[in-house]
Structure formats: C-alpha cells, structure tokens
C-alpha cells in the first residue's frame, strides 16, 4: 500500500534520513520505533508532503507521490495525526472535526461527526467548546477524530501517547487496536516500544536516520538488542 524506498531527507543542508525503506501493507499496523531525533517525524512529514525528500521514492497504491504537496497526499487518503496534536485552538470542537473533511468525505461529514462522537463520548460532550480549552488527552482524541473525518486509507499516528497519563495511554492503544480491527492501515510512530509492538503486525527501528532493525512485531519484542537499548533489560 505504502512503499518508501531509499529516502534521503532532512532540513536545509542537514540530512536526517540516510536512505530509509519501509512498507505498510493493506490493513496492517506498522510500528515505527526509535528514540528522539532518530528521524521518525522527518519520515512522516516527507510522506505527507510537508517537506520534499532529497532523494528516494514514496509510492502509494502504485502511484509515485515523492515530493507531492500535502493537498495531494490528503486527497489520496494519507492522513497524519501530527505530534503535538495541532488542533485549531481558536475553533470549536465541531469546526475542528469539520476541517478534517476539508478535502475528503465532505458530503458525509454529518454522519462522520456522529460516528466519531460515538467513539469519543468526551469529545461529543464538548462539541461546542473551543478546542484550545480541552485537556491534552481530549485534544489528542480530537486530533484523531479530525483525521477519521477524512475517511483515511492510511493513518499516520505520530506519538499519539506522548504526554498522556498511563490510563489514557492504555485507552489510546485500545483505540488504535480497534481502528486496526476495523480494517484501517496504520503507520504508528512511537517511543512506547512494548505497547506499540503488542498491537502492531510489523515494526521498524530507526536509529540515526537508518533502519537498524525490522521484522514481525513478535520477533522484535523478543530481540535482545532492542530490549537492552529501549527497555533497559
């Protein structure tokens, strides 16, 4: 479904990714792991078209989208929930959700708002509140709700558990598991290694801009090196 081939990318003169390749198959949850500064967000933003890769290819459902603008990737159904939520603080929860359907599924936005209200009852209670007044966890749910409004074909979740309480982290992973069960393809970018690998089919570990390890999630969970570097075990 998504194929990234030998991507070299970065900011200005500075290279962050030195030839990264990665696949996400239909209906798959793929975990992209790595410490801060490994290049995870750089990879996302180059897939979404916020930045243009220096070299390499991004192919989505057979179509070359390397260097495409974010409007194009959204049109194709690649929807990113960015790190730090990026909800619109000056707009109501409802308007935030409606903005999710800015380019896709606009005609079905009323049904989709109802559907998302069902998934996130706490968001539904605050539908007319300004998004800036929500708690961090609620903003994260709103950000995910906004992405679902576009009826994504591939969902990229960038650190969805960051800054959430342990209880909310549990809830977040249960939700991702549910979205997966509903058939959505997900690229899950996380620092939360164990929980991510528990719900993922496959995983990639990014280190210093390169894929250091990859394989089925269960194998990675057993890997000695990974356990040592990320879990201190």
């Amino acid at each position: 479904m998504l194929e990234v081939r030998d991507m070299v990318a970065g900011y200005g003169e500075v290279k962050v990714l030195h030839g990264v390749s990665l696949d996400v198959g239909p209906g798959e949850v793929v975990a992209l792991l790595g410490s801060n500064g490994a290049g995870k967000s750089t990879l996302n933003n180059n897939i979404s078209g916020i930045f243009r890769p220096f070299a390499g290819m991004v192919i989505f459902e057979g179509q070359d989208i390397s260097g495409a603008r974010p409007e194009t990737t959204v049109d194709l159904g690649i929807i990113q929930v960015p790190e730090g939520r990026r909800v619109f603080p000056n707009m109501s929860v409802r308007d935030n959700l409606e903005m999710g359907a800015y380019r896709r599924a606009r005609a079905r936005r009323t049904q989709n708002i109802d559907r998302i209200a069902g998934i996130f009852p706490r968001i539904a209670e605050r539908i007319d509140q300004l998004a800036g007044t929500l708690s961090g966890g609620e903003q994260q749910m709103l950000a995910i709700g906004r992405s679902l409004m576009a009826e994504p074909r591939l969902l990229i979740l960038d650190e969805p558990s960051l800054g959430l309480s342990p209880l909310l982290v549990e809830e977040m992973f249960a939700l991702i598991h549910q979205l997966h069960a509903d058939g959505l393809s997900i690229l899950l970018v996380e620092q939360n290694v164990v929980q991510s690998l528990e719900i993922a089919n496959r995983g990639y570990v990014l280190e210093n801009g390169k894929v250091a390890m990859s394989g089925p999630a269960s194998n990675l969970l057993q890997d000695e090196g990974l356990r040592r570097s990320y879990l201190g075990m």
Binding site: E71, V74, I79, P82, V87, F88, N90, R103, R104, A150
Partner: peptide, 13 residues
C-alpha cells in the same frame, strides 16, 4: 490563522 501546520495536514493550501 492559529495553526498553519495543522491546516496543511488536513489539506489546506
């Protein structure tokens, strides 16, 4: 006006 990056990611030009 308030969140350019978020706007780009929902596909606003």
């Amino acid at each position: 006006a308030k969140e350019r990056q978020g706007a780009r990611l929902v596909g606003v030009n």
